[in-house]
C-alpha cells in the first residue's frame, strides 16, 4: 500500500542539509515494519516526511499510497487518506480538550470524504468505549490535551487517538532511547490490538526493546539517510547484540 522510491529530503531553507539520501521501501497491507538505526540516521525525519511536515523539503523521489503520489499533500490530507503519526512527545495543548479535538479531527476526515459527520451522541459513545479500551483515566480526558500528562498518560492518549481515528497506516515515532518500560508496553498493546490484515504499521525505534513486545514482519536498518539492510525479525536481535558499527563503517558515516 505504501511505497517509498529514492526519497531524498533536507531541512527547508537550509542548504546542504540532506538527511534522507535515497530511501526505497515498500509496506504491504497488514504488515508491521520496524525501522531501526543509530542516533542521527534520519529515522525521525523519515516519520515526519512521510506525514508531510512542512519543515522538510523533498528534493527527489516519491511516496505513493495505494499507487497515488502523496508528495504534494498536506499532513491533514494524508491523515484523511488514512495515515497517522504517533508522536514520541506529543504537544501539550492548553485549553483544548481531547474529546473536542478528536471530534474535530473525525469531522474533517468525514467532510473530506464527503461522508456525514458522526452525531455528538454516537461520537460520545465511541469515545467512552475507546477511553475504557485504552485504559486512560476518564478524568484525564476532561482536561487540556496532554497538559500535565505523565509520559505514560501521553502514550495512552496517542493510542486513544489511534483507536478513534482507525488509520490504515500508522507510523509510530519512538525514536528516543529514553522510553520507559511502561510506555513501551502501552505502545505495544496499542499496536497489537489494532493489528489487522487491512492495517499497516511503521514502527521507528532506536533499540530492539520495543520489538520484544511487537513482532515485526520486516526490519530495516537506516544509516546516514539510507536503508542499508532489510530482513526479518532476527535482524533486530542482531543489532541488539552487535550494535550499528558494522553498518556505520560500511557507509563511511561518522555518527
Amino acid at each position: 500500500m505504501l511505497e517509498i522510491k529514492n526519497l531524498h529530503a533536507s531541512v527547508l531553507d537550509i542548504d546542504d542539509s540532506e538527511i534522507l539520501t535515497g530511501i526505497d521501501m515498500k509496506v504491504n497491507k497488514g504488515e508491521v515494519h520496524a525501522i531501526m538505526g543509530p542516533n542521527g540516521s534520519g529515522k525521525s525525519t523519515l516519520a515526519n516526511v512521510l506525514m508531510g511536515r512542512f519543515d522538510y523539503l523533498v528534493s527527489e523521489g516519491d511516496i505513493t499510497l495505494d499507487g497515488e503520489s502523496i508528495i504534494e499533500l498536506r499532513p491533514d490530507q494524508r491523515a484523511h487518506l488514512g495515515m497517522f503519526l504517533a508522536f514520541q512527545y506529543p504537544a501539550e495543548i492548553p485549553g483544548v480538550r481531547p474529546w473536542q479535538f478528536l471530534k474535530t479531527a473525525l469531522d474533517s476526515k468525514a467532510e473530506s470524504r464527503g461522508e456525514d459527520k458522526m452525531s455528538v451522541r454516537n461520537f460520545s459513545k465511541l469515545f467512552d468505549e475507546k477511553v475504557e479500551a485504552v485504559g486512560i483515566n476518564p478524568n484525564l480526558v476532561k482536561r487540556s490535551l496532554n497538559e500535565g500528562f505523565s509520559g505514560g498518560e501521553k502514550k495512552r492518549n496517542e493510542m486513544l487517538q489511534l483507536e478513534v481515528l482507525q488509520p490504515s497506516l500508522a507510523i509510530l515515532d519512538e525514536t528516543d532511547s529514553g522510553l520507559d518500560v511502561d510506555a513501551l508496553r502501552i505502545v505495544a498493546e496499542g499496536v497489537n490490538s489494532m493489528r489487522s490484515p487491512a492495517r499497516s504499521f511503521i514502527v521507528v525505534t532506536h533499540y530492539q526493546r520495543l520489538l520484544n513486545y511487537i513482532t515485526p514482519d520486516v526490519v530495516h536498518i537506516l544509516v546516514a539517510g539510507k536503508i542499508v539492510k532489510t530482513g526479518g525479525p532476527e535482524l533486530a536481535l542482531e543489532v541488539e547484540k552487535d550494535g550499528y558499527n558494522e553498518y556505520l563503517s560500511a557507509t563511511g558515516a561518522n555518527v
Binding site: M51, R74, D76, H80, F84, L85, F87, F101, K109
Partner: peptide, 12 residues
C-alpha cells in the same frame, strides 16, 4: 503543535 494537529486530519 500545529503539525501535531494537522497530522490528525485538522487543516491549518
Amino acid at each position: 503543535t500545529l503539525f501535531y494537529l494537522q497530522s490528525r486530519g485538522v487543516d491549518e
